[in-house]
């Protein structure tokens, strides 16, 4: 099918302000949007800059705005967009560095702030083997282990757009993953962090994050569980 692809361009070494480049191309409806960007690089303009690696929705490199919504470019097919006009822009709420590349550092800083690692200083089992955890205990946080830190959720959140100090849904998801892990012993510390002004209460339940998540994590539910844990003092 014939499509019109508009791509956000900005070269900080040359351009005063961003522009859109337009490309007309013949594509397969089953092509990924990432494939289209690769066609641009191969056949039209090899200087287009973007991040990408695994190309099948696992590495989290290529989150971007496609027709006004956050997707991984490698996980959305042309036919899923139901349009022959496709507009690709960088994520909102993070500084654009060049073309589709944004500054991810504020995002990772928020992630690091919630202590996203197992904390348990108790002695390991004497036989040196695994700590036990029932399938039910594991199910409690299974959903939030799926996060690939692509930032599609956080950069779709109106609260984050208005204040980038807000830790954002991705950081809360990663806090949830440990708060509800039966092996972890630092839930209280994380809940205290998320109970602060720039923590979980900035969430206004817009649901954008859940819709944007390419891993289909029930983010709003996870955030609600964290809020509930803060209020009840129980996990």
């Amino acid at each position: 099918m014939q499509i019109k692809l508009r791509v956000f361009r900005f070269d900080p070494e040359k351009d005063q302000k961003p522009r859109f480049d337009t490309f007309f191309m013949d594509v397969d409806p089953n092509d990924r949007v990432l494939d289209l960007l690769e066609y641009v690089k191969a056949d039209f303009d090899s200087s287009l800059a973007l991040r990408r690696s695994c190309a099948h929705g696992i590495c989290g490199s290529d989150a971007m705005r496609i027709n006004g919504r956050n997707y991984l470019a490698c996980k959305v097919l042309v036919k899923n967009l139901h349009s022959d006009q496709i507009t690709v822009e960088p994520l909102l709420g993070l500084r654009v560095i060049k073309d589709l590349i944004v500054d991810m550092e504020p995002f990772f800083e928020n992630y690091r702030s919630v202590l996203p690692y197992l904390i348990n200083d108790e002695a390991l089992p004497e036989d040196g083997k695994e700590r036990l955890q029932t399938p039910e205990e594991r199910d409690r946080f299974e959903d939030t282990t799926k996060c690939i830190l692509c930032a599609a959720c956080t950069t779709s959140c109106p609260s984050f757009w208005s204040d980038e100090r807000y830790v954002g849904p991705a950081a809360i998801v990663n806090a949830h993953r440990f708060i509800f892990d039966s092996r972890d012993r630092a839930a209280e510390r994380r809940l205290n962090i998320l109970n602060q002004q720039i923590g979980v209460w900035r969430c206004r339940t817009a649901f954008n994050c859940t819709e944007a998540c390419p891993r289909e994590i029930h983010i709003t539910t996870a955030i609600a569980e964290v809020k509930q844990a803060i209020l009840s003092g129980k996990v």
Partner: peptide
Amino acid sequence: YDLEHMGLPFSRTADGR
């Protein structure tokens, strides 16, 4: 076992292993 101790969320058997 080291990975498990670091927090890796392995799937589990009915008896928690």
